[in-house]
Design a protein around this nucleic acid. Structure first.
Lengths: 235, 235
DNA sequence: CCATCTTAGTGTCCCATAAACAATAAGCCT
DNA sequence: AGGCTTATTGTTTATGGGACACTAAGATGG
């Protein structure tokens, strides 16, 4: 029977000893498909399987710092864009080595193809995977559950906030914005209703440049406000 | 400089040693006002101040188990009703004794006046406080921030889900349901629109009993579905 | 230069739901 | 019977979401 409580910190024993991990789900859109960044584990448990980047939180850093440090260490990329805490998974037996509790974060990046990623010493590889064709993941269903939870949250954020602005380059066309929404929500949207809504919410600002590609040139816009705003409903 | 990573669990040193706490915000409505359950701390830090019930998670129990165990130990009441994880607060220097990370939970109870609460050995007192007239709280602004965060979340849940059903007795009148909404949202609602909405969402079932008090007797209802359902908007 | 291809851009109608708003009903008490 | 208290019920208006198809601008190639 463990001690009833901890009044003096020196009483701390193995009864309360656990590790806290920070896992980071990184979302980016590549070729109009939503992707997540995964690392191939080099060591046990789960060596050879793909996993969400993450690692243990040190006693002298905040949870967010730990999440971003691990991301940098494992994938070589510096945070840019949006960071949000998702959920803390605290069931027993997530890691056979010890009691581990994991707090999951979500990071959104724009133009993932331009980000240089490279596997660290601890990872055998780093790569982007389409959210709907994931490889075999380590840690049983735990990491897959986290990914699907994160995707759910991301969909919600797209429907009710302007968070999409953090996944776009400085300049973009309304068609690009719509393709981003369609990639995240995994559904087609009506072009006219979409543009009407975006413009009426005053999310974007017209630039005096156009983007010329195949077809009629498209008006370029920039985000009017990158701070998170919550709306009643967007799409 | 700490070690770069933990490959063998035996390498665990003080660099990764921290305590995980579970704090539980308990909401109940008393006399048509939203209240929270607090404990008066008997020991340092914050002895004499009021605080959210909570304590450290043991290595052999899940986060939820820890939250409910601490609630039981500190206030003497067994969980009943709704439990939801809120957020994990991981900044440094929350507790002067050691590095502490805290995961906050929210519990909703019906008929709080009927619940017997009693201070444990570790607490000097336990009591309910109206959410908008809180006492001086321990841990700087940390616990107050958690309470306000929890209240925000609760409001959202009331607007978009049927979670209110978990805060009602088995039988209730529509006026009682409306008073519950008004207590949580801290605003007056239109009686006709409210009843129309509740009935159209099929949240309740008519009983063949009425409640007689002062005035015209009121139809009694029961919840049709206590499982959490999400709607586009309720009130 | 004209036809064709490709993507950008635009407006209307209908329906469902939100919001505002007041009179009647049922029981109790004196 | 009249007055008090709380319960119950419907209509109108305004707003926003959802469905829907044609025109515009530039590029290319015959």
């Amino acid at each position: 029977m463990p001690k009833k409580n901890i009044r003096n910190f020196e009483e701390l024993t193995d009864d309360w000893r656990l590790l806290l991990a920070a896992d980071i789900v990184v979302f980016g859109v590549i070729k109009s498909k939503l992707h997540v960044l995964l690392v191939k584990r080099k060591f046990e448990p789960g060596a050879g399987d793909w996993a969400i980047p993450g690692g243990f939180v040190r006693a002298d850093e905040s949870l967010e710092q730990a999440a971003l440090r691990e991301l940098k260490e494992e994938t070589g990329f510096q945070k840019e864009g949006y960071l949000e805490q998702l959920y803390t998974f605290g069931e027993l037996k997530r890691d056979p080595r010890a009691r581990v509790v994991a707090t999951a974060y979500m990071v959104l990046v724009s133009e993932p193809e331009k980000i240089k990623i490279k596997a660290s010493d601890d990872a055998a590889a780093v790569d982007w995977f389409p959210i709907n064709s994931l490889p075999v993941l380590a840690f049983g269903s735990a990491h897959k559950d986290i990914l699907l939870y994160a995707w759910q949250r991301l969909k919600w954020k797209f429907e009710y906030t302007n968070v999409a602005m953090t996944m776009l380059p400085k300049q973009f066309t309304l068609s690009e914005l719509q393709k981003l929404y369609e990639a995240v929500l995994a559904e087609k949207l009506d072009k006219r209703n979409f543009r009407k809504k975006i413009l009426s919410l005053d999310l974007v600002e017209v630039l005096d440049e156009v983007k010329k590609e195949l077809g009629r040139p498209a008006q370029l816009y920039k985000a009017k406000n990158k701070e998170l705003q919550i709306f009643s409903r967007i799409v």
